[in-house]
């Protein structure tokens, strides 16, 4: 398995002097092709800032990020924009889709951005959406789709152009539990099936049952990396059981934020 993403000693500091805030502190890791990684941690732990740097939306203060062996630091803004649309797939927490484009057109958008959409692109979009269970929703506008369907369209858009790296920012944040599982499972299947590198930022540890590795962040640093299946499943199921047993405990946990559990 080749390395799709390599993060070397990346630090991000906002501001300077006394007002300096270290958002990401000397983080290093790599993600292989076909590997799906969850980036977890409490709010303010630096995972979204890290995701923004991986996407080339923010410049690291120190360190380097390599995607497909190319150093993002050596690219200017225009090159990063082009790199993003060619090599990175994105899904966001909300406002993922263009409200004036149908499901199929939203997926085709990435191909259009990358040089046009002929009949082949349209066929690929239809195939991918059908595989995601949206074959009957191709010509629906986002407002006519449920939250889960919208996220699945966003996943299709993130994968249609065969990117090296797929980034997902809280893809289950606005979904109910059942739909959240469906969406992440689909995401994981596609990442594995298409042999793309995938990184998902999430608060919801239950979703980790579908990932290959969990990178846990706190205060800008990586505090733990779980790569054994049983460790990951234990983390996810512990959270799942907690959810089922006591909602009151969840609220309490939110204030104390114990290790391994990051209630929203």
């Amino acid at each position: 398995m080749g390395i799709a993403l390599e993060v070397r000693n990346v630090t991000k500091i906002y501001g300077s002097g006394e007002n300096a805030v270290v958002a990401v502190n000397d983080v290093s890791f790599s993600v292989a092709e076909g590997e799906f990684v969850a980036l977890v941690g409490p709010s303010g732990s630096g995972k979204t800032t890290l995701l923004a740097m991986l996407a080339g939306l923010l410049y690291p203060t120190q360190g380097n990020i390599y995607i497909d062996g190319q150093d993002l630091a050596k690219m200017d803004d225009a090159q990063r924009t082009a790199f993003r649309r060619q090599r990175i797939g994105f899904t966001f927490q909300a406002n993922n889709l263009m409200p004036y484009l149908t499901a199929r057109e939203n997926v085709e958008l990435m191909m259009r951005l990358n040089g046009g959409c002929k009949s082949e692109c349209s066929r690929m979009a239809v195939e991918l959406l059908t595989r995601l269970g949206l074959g009957h929703r191709l010509n629906n506008l986002p407002r006519q789709l449920s939250g889960g369907e919208q996220q699945r369209v966003a996943i299709a858009r993130a994968l249609i152009h065969n990117p090296t790296l797929v980034l997902a920012d809280e893809p289950t944040a606005s979904l109910d539990t059942e739909r959240a599982y469906q969406v992440v499972e689909t995401f994981a299947d596609l990442i594995h099936g298409h042999r793309r590198a995938g990184i998902m930022v999430t608060h919801d540890l239950r979703m980790c049952i579908y990932v290959d590795r969990v990178i846990q962040m706190q205060d800008g640093r990586i505090v733990r990396i779980l790569s054994q299946r049983d460790e990951i499943d234990e983390l996810a199921s512990a959270k799942r059981q907690r959810t089922k047993t006591t909602a009151v405990a969840e609220v309490t946990a939110a204030s104390s934020a114990p290790d391994g559990q990051f209630p929203r």
Partner: peptide
Amino acid sequence: VAQIGVLKAIGTPNRA
């Protein structure tokens, strides 16, 4: 604003 942000994030150039 949110839509434009998403368009830019997925690599839509300013000229578009």
